[in-house]
């Protein structure tokens, strides 16, 4: 059983030159480096132009994190889907659908129940309804072999239409004191929605990094054949992934309704691109197989800092789109270069 250790038959390749390793490290850390760079630039600009601090202002810091919550929630689920080699284009309108349903059900329940249970009913309904498009996405992709891009694009339309129909084409205001407190209240000085998002990040970080589910997600993105032959139920796993993505969007919708005390079908409309951008900036590859939750958090913060920072230094808001777009392109270029170097993925 024991082989002779006479000659080294196989020795793995050397890790590479220091310069190459340094480049790979920069590529892997790009989201955090981007974030640091942006904060430095805005800080300098702010001090030169207004003589005030940008980063160290707790008001700014808080606004940026609150701003980042919704795209981050969508991006967390999207991270799993993208690592597995898929894409979910429907998250924006699943979020809208969930926001509208949460508002409608809270109001209906509020007519017969006290505010707190009414809010719980609204939250449960918002999260529950998000699972419907998620389940359909997973079924289309795993059973009917519809490409994820097309399947979820179709669901984008369906969820959008359903949300607008349910909301009668308008926003649905909520009058529920508990819901308002959830969206705008504070706990130990921190905004409640930021705390919820932070807890959710921890759970997702655990799920991706420490469980079989996460491990199989990476394997699926690297090679579906490898996953199949390892005995992983690929169809079942795929269905779970799209449910998870939809659930994240559903939570985003519920928190939107809480924050604005109104549900709106278009709640997540601008967030689809932002969430995918956050995942890609965070180091995930659209080819699948790589990405991390912490990277996605950094990516979400990069986008939030760009958007908030440009407003802060009084640049016309439309430049946000240009800036975010450029950052996405740079990230994808870095990813491709990294692949060419054959480094950590």
């Amino acid at each position: 059983m024991v082989a002779q250790m006479s000659s080294k038959v196989l020795v793995p390749r050397k890790p590479g030159t220091p310069a190459k390793r340094w480049i790979l490290w920069v590529a892997a850390m790009r989201a955090w480096l981007f974030l640091a760079l942006l904060l430095i630039v805005f800080e300098i600009w702010s001090r030169l132009s207004y003589g005030t601090t940008f980063v160290l202002s707790s008001y700014n810091a808080q606004s940026i994190t609150i701003f980042a919550v919704a795209p981050l929630l969508l991006a967390l689920g999207e991270t799993f889907v993208i690592i597995a080699g898929g894409i979910d284009l429907s998250v924006g309108f699943i979020m809208g659908l969930s926001a509208v349903i949460a508002a409608l059900v809270t109001n209906k329940a509020g007519a017969v129940l006290p505010p707190f249970p009414a809010m719980l009913a609204g939250i449960a309904a918002g999260l529950g309804v998000s699972l419907v498009p998620g389940a359909v996405n997973g079924w289309l992709i795993s059973k009917l072999k519809v490409p994820p891009f097309i399947g979820t694009l179709g669901m984008f339309g369906v969820a959008r239409g359903a949300a607008f129909i349910l909301a009668s084409g308008t926003t649905v205001p909520v009058s529920n004191s508990w819901f308002a407190a959830l969206g705008n209240g504070r706990f130990l000085g921190f905004p409640v929605i930021v705390i919820i998002a932070a807890l959710f990040v921890l759970v997702m970080h655990y799920l991706l990094g420490q469980t079989r589910f996460g491990q199989h997600t990476y394997a699926l993105g690297a090679s579906e054949q490898a996953a199949v032959r390892a005995g992983i139920g690929v169809g079942r796993h795929t269905r779970k992934l799209y449910l998870l993505s939809a659930l994240c969007a559903g939570l985003g919708g519920v928190l939107y309704t809480a924050r604005f005390t109104a549900g709106a079908a278009q709640a997540g409309e601008p967030l689809l691109l932002d969430s995918i951008a956050a995942v890609v900036i965070g180091g995930a590859s659209l080819f699948g197989g790589s990405g991390t939750i912490l990277g996605t958090v950094a990516g979400s913060l990069v986008i939030a800092v760009i958007q908030y920072g440009l407003v802060f230094i009084d640049v016309e808001p439309f430049w946000q789109f240009v800036a975010v777009g450029i950052v996405i392109i740079i990230s994808v270029l870095v990813d491709q270069t990294q692949r060419k170097f054959g480094g950590d993925r």
Binding site: R212, Y218, A219, A222, S223, A226, A227, A230, G289
Partner: peptide, 26 residues
């Protein structure tokens, strides 16, 4: 198999145990 059916992004250990990973309690 000819294509080896390895997940290139995972370590040797993770590939050996793919689909039947050992767990511990943190």
């Amino acid at each position: 198999y000819q294509d080896l059916a390895l997940a290139d992004n995972l370590s040797i250990g993770a590939n050996i145990f793919l689909g039947r990973e050992p767990m511990r309690r943190a």
